[in-house]
Design a protein around this nucleic acid. Structure first.
Lengths: 252, 252
DNA sequence: CGAATTAGGGAATGGTTGCTTCCTATGTCT
DNA sequence: AGACATAGGAAGCAACCATTCCCTAATTCG
């Protein structure tokens, strides 16, 4: 039973995420906008002393980064989604990111930081896709329908098999890693308020009946979407039209 | 990239689940009935040559087991649900099962076998609970309502925080462990046909309209239930009455 | 009773992992 | 040029993990 302070101790203990006093760094953070575009979350592409302060396009000193952070993170997303956090070794990570070990550890504090950055990017990209799907609808009801359909499509086939990093984090880490748990719940709430917003929009434009309970329905729909990712990862076939057709009854 | 045959190699490679020729053993398997009570799945409490053949109460030779297998497995279920497969060390396991390392390995081939046995017991227990919930309903519709309510209750609070081993397996293992993937999909299908059966029962007794598509609705409800476990693990509050109230619209 | 057999439990083992540290080469800034 | 920072790889380290070994009980069979 006695296990004390290991490498990834902050994942196994209830403790804090380690104050990161390794190098104090006021990062010039690349920010990504999230689903509801309310919250702006920074992720750390590297550690570099802030450039000049008010010259946003100024290139920092030193050799510029050769690899593209986003494509590297896309690789990280791929493995993390597929295998989860614990089963992904640094070797898996460097292979997927096409980076050497040293480079990874130069760009990120540790494995956990890579995971967080991958999570951030995933949330940002998926949020954009979802908002795009919504935008293709004429009214609240149509938007909602498109959003649900988009969720099903992303839960199917090879992408579905790969899995969702949010669901993965919730299941694998939320009991044991307070940082990721906070991030996951925030993400779920963001998505939920986005959906609730669409329902209210539908009620305003008359495409959704007024007696629909926006918040409860939104929460149930979040359950549906998260469950879709679980079921999709287990490779059960999913038929978008049929499932969404049934789901739209919730707006009756 | 080069990783060859590690401890839990059959989990990391695409390979087979290892033919288990370690010791050939015709186990006198303790069997558990599953949700739909159609399939009988053996799990391996130990390796003992079959006793006499047709004397079910005959005690096998050797020192009898001291611990209760089911309570030990309940402990295993607890940690596996909470931390998942990979993050659970043998130390965690022995602590939770209140067994010494050697005893665990005497009773099970390896960690994977413990996990499978825990999964089996979990499925069996939860199946019984679900069937009990259904039995408390007067007609198909009521049964369904009770089942959904039971799912929400189990996804809430401390049990919800602990999590569901089926969801955990789906997310953490199904991409990488064909044995568990098969087990997970089988379980999901079993649950799905159970729900579909309740819908049809409701249609037969008049409590559910005939135009409801039983299969599609059942699949969507499975997504809901699995999603509930994800959301519950992320600790979002869940209100059974409200959520199920909304969900019952699917039977309109 | 002895032989056979199995469980209990803890110590030992061997391999892997995450992480760190070196090193040299390279590119961009002041 | 000099400072700085990245790239990439190799080598190393301490920790940990899953598994095995081994010795001690407890029970049945002959």
């Amino acid at each position: 039973m006695g296990r004390v302070a290991s490498h990834d101790s902050h994942l196994r203990m209830t403790g804090q995420p380690m104050p990161s006093l390794h190098r104090r760094h006021t990062v010039q953070a690349i920010t990504t906008r999230c689903l509801d575009s309310e919250t702006i979350i920074p992720y750390y592409p590297a550690m570099q002393k802030t450039a000049r302060q008010s010259q946003p396009a100024a290139q920092p000193p030193g050799r510029p980064r050769e690899f593209d952070m986003d494509t590297a993170l896309d690789g990280a997303i791929r493995v993390f989604c597929e295998r989860g956090y614990h089963a992904t070794s640094i070797g898996d990570l460097t292979a997927a990111m096409r980076l050497a070990t040293g480079s990874v550890y130069k760009a990120f504090r540790d494995k956990h930081a890579v995971f967080l950055a991958a999570f951030e990017r995933y949330a940002s990209v998926r949020g954009e896709q979802t908002r795009a799907a919504a935008a293709r609808g004429a009214n609240g009801r149509e938007k909602l329908r498109n959003v649900l359909l988009s969720y099903v499509e992303h839960s199917k086939g090879s992408e579905g098999r790969r899995g969702c990093i949010v669901v993965g984090s919730a299941v694998e880490l939320s009991a044991v890693d307070p940082v990721m748990r906070a991030r996951v719940t925030a993400q779920l709430k963001t998505n939920e308020t986005f959906i609730a917003g669409l329902i209210r929009e539908g009620q305003a434009d008359g495409s959704v009946p007024d007696h629909v309970e926006a918040d409860d329905t939104a929460r149930l729909m979040i359950c549906m979407t998260q469950g879709l990712r679980v079921v999709g990862k287990a490779r059960l076939p999913l038929d978008g039209e049929r499932l969404v057709g049934v789901a739209m009854k919730l707006l009756a």
